[in-house]
Design a protein around this nucleic acid. Structure first.
Lengths: 371, 371
DNA sequence: GAAGTTACCGAAACCGGTTTCGGCAAGCGG
DNA sequence: CCGCTTGCCGAAACCGGTTTCGGTAACTTC
């Protein structure tokens, strides 16, 4: 029994050099070593240097878990991903994770992720992770206008940062890309190209970004002196199928739009299908400007004009903000909003048709199909 | 100062109920509580029940970090993802993560992930995570035939499981889907449909799966009594562009194949493009059977026939295996290989053309383009 | 009824760190 | 030359758990 225990212990010793090893190597106590390594002011410079050197040469790495039980800080950021249809596809996840992981790794932090299937599941996991202190704080992607995660974390006094904004921003830090400005710019650009009836395909209202893009659309109209016409706003669409339906809805208006602004690229790709059904050429018969910057936008003809969001960069920034937040910075000072970058490709152009002409083409196409 | 410290402490008290709280509530020592909760045999059933009940009603949850410093076990599984072109796309990542996270969560484990950009980066992160004991073991996705990660973890005596197999399997546990059997079956199915010249688009040789699928291809030929013709094996292709080039290469043979077996769906989608260039109809002029089961395969016409791998299930199984491995099970007993499921869709069918006919069509198409 | 088990639990050490407290020696002012 | 800071470090408590060790009471056993 003794042999066994001894063997195990020496095996562990061999694997891991502890603060005691460093201390005994130097002939000091571990308290001195600890304070030297953590930059306490009551350690002389010479001692500090000796300790650092010894720690380095022995390959000493403090165990984050052991540190955490006294300090309460684990240097781990938490991430609960809700993998619904919205996020499964695209490099979104990969890029987002890469950004977070990279920034975390550079700051010597780690990332613990969990995946959920529903809102309740997300909340349950968040609660569990916070409760068992598996992370010092959380990044909340895809913020909702009314977001229970925020309410929970705020109540539990657990630090967090938002990717996106929300209704009640008390105590919230966030990073976001100004998709409302992008949407507004899309309208203005289309107006400058001669378009006067500009349709809008919104996102799901529960997401904050969907509201903001709608605001941007209206702000754009206002700035161009165009009246807001509720008919020009379709049903929400987040994917190709719904996007096709929404575009179809708008194209079947008595005076259809000559240009579409889509909230997400995936819906815009659906609009391509709808246009094709009526033999409308995207970029000439019908202009489309969208938002996201997904890669499939480059695979269609003509290539999709869009506002691109750098998701990887967002992950990096969010991580940096969260670490600052955990370190005690006030949330009011941790709010960043950056513009999206306009990627002009082939799906938008000067207004070549009037709404009336478009309506004729469309009704002809429909008649042709009926025959 | 005292007030501040006191306040902080009582705040922490309020947040978290410790084993001491449970013990003092019951009037016992924390050692009794600990042993009762951990199922030690020297605690009476009545005491055990009382402790469990008290812990439950007080909402006591042991801190994994605190446990870890004595037990050395964190209940965390590690994952270093190399996000190259291969994995960025597709729901692969999302599904894989979902499976791992779900299985881990159910076993009350957590997942710490890290992302890397290169082989060296992966190794560096793996080394760091293992060194600082941020995880008790690792899941290694995308195993290579010669895999430095395996060598490192084996040397460091850190538990791990492979998603895929490798050359030297000493001490390795793994889960894999038998893509070699799938590839063989693909050949046999095509043979049964009358195809006699069956081309093969391999994957990158450094991946184990690519070798296995090549073996499966040859095994299929052997079983069908077809000779192996090196000309019928194209350059490796993992994406659409390369897939198109590889298919083009095979179609330009003097006696082109009437059917293709592709190692990955993405390459098969490239083959669609190549076929379109010569006005070849997939499924009749040229049959294609592939492997992966990605969703884009359902968006093309005709839909892609493929062998589908349940990546989410793989994640779940790998997690279960890793936990067993960490709990001391021998790696030899932790090896699973399951078949892929055949998804018959529209891209394969009876051989309608001879190779000679195909060659004629192709050369005609080329001449037409030249004019 | 004495001796020997056995069941059960408390006391204390331990894990690898951090942090508080106090003491010694050098430096400084008077 | 004495008292008082000040700089620097050791001793010990602490964090939240686990695990070893030993002792008491009840229960056998003859």
């Amino acid at each position: 029994m003794e042999t066994r225990a001894h063997k195990v212990r020496s095996a562990l010793r061999r694997q891991r050099v502890t603060i005691n090893d460093v201390a005994s190597e130097l002939g000091m106590t571990k308290s001195t070593v600890s304070r030297a390594l953590n930059g306490y002011p009551d350690i002389s410079d010479t001692t500090r240097l000796r300790v650092r050197e010894a720690a380095r040469s022995l390959g000493y790495r403090p165990l984050a878990n052991a540190q955490a039980i006294r300090t309460g800080r684990l240097r781990a950021i938490g991430l609960v991903l809700q993998l619904n249809e919205h996020d499964r596809h695209r490099p979104f996840l990969a890029d987002f994770l890469a950004g977070i992981s990279q920034a975390a790794s550079e700051a010597d932090w780690t990332v613990t992720v969990s995946t959920a299937a529903s809102d309740e599941d997300t909340l349950r996991l968040l609660c569990k992770l916070a409760d068992e202190h598996k992370a010092d704080g959380f990044i909340l992607p895809r913020t909702l206008w009314e977001d229970l995660r925020i309410a929970f974390l705020r109540g539990a006094k657990v630090p967090f940062v938002l990717y996106g904004r929300t209704r009640n921003s008390d105590g919230c830090a966030w990073f976001d890309i100004s998709s409302e400005a992008a949407t507004q710019e899309a309208v203005e650009r289309l107006f400058a190209l001669g378009h006067r009836r500009i349709g809008f395909v919104p996102g799901a209202e529960r997401y904050t970004y969907a509201r903001l893009r709608m605001e941007g659309y209206r702000a754009g109209l206002l700035k161009c002196g165009l009246a807001f016409d509720p008919d020009l706003v379709s049903e929400p669409a987040l994917n190709r199928t719904d996007g096709a339906a929404s575009a179809d809805q708008l194209l079947n208006l008595a005076t259809p739009p000559t240009a579409l602004v889509c909230s997400v690229d995936r819906a815009a790709l659906g609009a391509y299908e709808a246009a094709q059904n009526y033999n409308l050429q995207i970029g000439s018969d019908l202009s489309v400007i969208s938002y996201d910057g997904i890669e499939e936008g480059e695979l269609v003809a003509p290539k999709l004009t869009t506002f691109s969001a750098d998701v990887r960069d967002a992950g990096r920034r969010l991580t940096a903000l969260l670490i600052e937040r955990i370190n005690g910075a006030a949330p009011e000072n941790l709010r960043q909003v950056l513009p999206a970058t306009f990627v002009a490709r082939g799906s938008h152009g000067p207004a070549m048709r009037t709404s009336a002409e478009l309506a004729t083409i469309i009704s002809n196409a429909k008649r042709q199909v009926e025959e």
